[in-house]
Amino acid sequence: MKSLAELAAIRDKMKNKVALREESGETRIVVGMATCGIAAGARPVLSTFVEEVDKAGLNGSVAVTQTGCIGLCRYEPIVEVLRAGEEKVTYIKMTPEKALEVMEKHIKGGKPVVEYTIGNIEK
């Protein structure tokens, strides 16, 4: 049975990681979570990224954050990936399956999945 006491264990385990976290921010995954994003299916996309970052042990270098409506509601769920020194990549009409692929190829592999980007549609 899960208990609150386990949180103290998480704290102890992460003590030595805090230093690492502070110099993090190399990669940021931003998920649109306004009414439009939520209605289009952003919640499972967000949870996929959070879970996969945890599974891959990338907590120190990859931050998953949420944002409001950016005015492109017809393309929601929208995910932006920002990597230090690189141009921002905007993924549109995301699903948990696409999120897994972005995680593998872009976040871990460094190569954007061009197929799912807004540039690929708005040409």
Binding site: L4, L7, A8, I10, E51, V53, D54, N59
Partner: peptide
């Protein structure tokens, strides 16, 4: 609130905490 007391400096939004 209860969670924060136990977590101390660890951010509530950490993926480890969300999994929990």
């Amino acid at each position: 609130k209860e969670m924060r007391e136990l977590l101390g400096d660890v951010p509530l939004g950490s993926p480890e905490v969300i999994s929990w």
